[in-house]
Amino acid sequence: MLGQQLLNGVVLGAVYALFALGFTLIFGVLGVINLTYGFYFSAGAFLALYFTQGLGISMMLALLLAGIVTGGIAVILDGLLLTPLRRAKAPELASLMVTLGATLFLYSLMSAYFGTDIRRLPPKVFTNVGFNWLGLHIETSQLLILVTMVVIVSGLGWLTQRTRMGLAIRALAENGTAAQLAGINAGAVTRIVSFLSGGIGGLAGVLIGMNYNAIEPYMGEQMMLKGFAVVIMGGLGNIRGALVAGLMLGVLETLTAGYIGSSLKDAVGFGLAVLTLWVRPVGLFGRATIKRA
């Protein structure tokens, strides 16, 4: 049973890690806490439902398309909400508040329109096939989650470390003003980063919607609370930290439910996050360069 629980935990952790990756990317490069991020998660799942059920597109293609569309939504929302604030050099917390309001707006619009009932992918669109391997029960959606995570992580690593665009992204993350002085088009880089993070958030939403076959408007808000715990544990803006902390949280939650008590499962993340703030506020792998007051 331990092996099975560990597998459940790693899959859950992979989703947490993937989700936190996009979130921490925005903060690391653009320096804002963008609360609309949870909405991309819900939006991705709903889009995939629409593409497969409404338009009859295959699941794999729908996954890709949902990621692209949520990426686009992220670029538009950033342009509408955050660009004016950047231009006005508004205080740091203004961006948090504006995305908070936008999140409330988007979620409640979505639930007023779609209702809050859980929706499910019809069996003809997607059926989870389970098979046994080394005594473990594995499902296709679980494999897909693990594969997507590896692909996204290596792709992101390649992009930021090996390409010119990656250099520009890293420069902007290091020092915005200096990067602009060096001739980097900050607007374009901002759009690319928004697109990437929105896309990752959307993909994570489709994958988890598929794995538990449950899609509802507020699924992103639930995820966001875990996302905060993961990015605090891993260090705000730290991509490697988000990966490790995400996997760790997934495994710990599953083990808690399996061996200690299922009622404590959801408190694990918050407990670890507060502990991190007390003991090591820069996160598990944080460099001490986090902006201090």
Partner: peptide, 15 residues
Amino acid sequence: TFGGKDTDFSAQLTK
């Protein structure tokens, strides 16, 4: 136990 909004019951059911 589980929460009313939970969608993941795999840990409990595996046990």
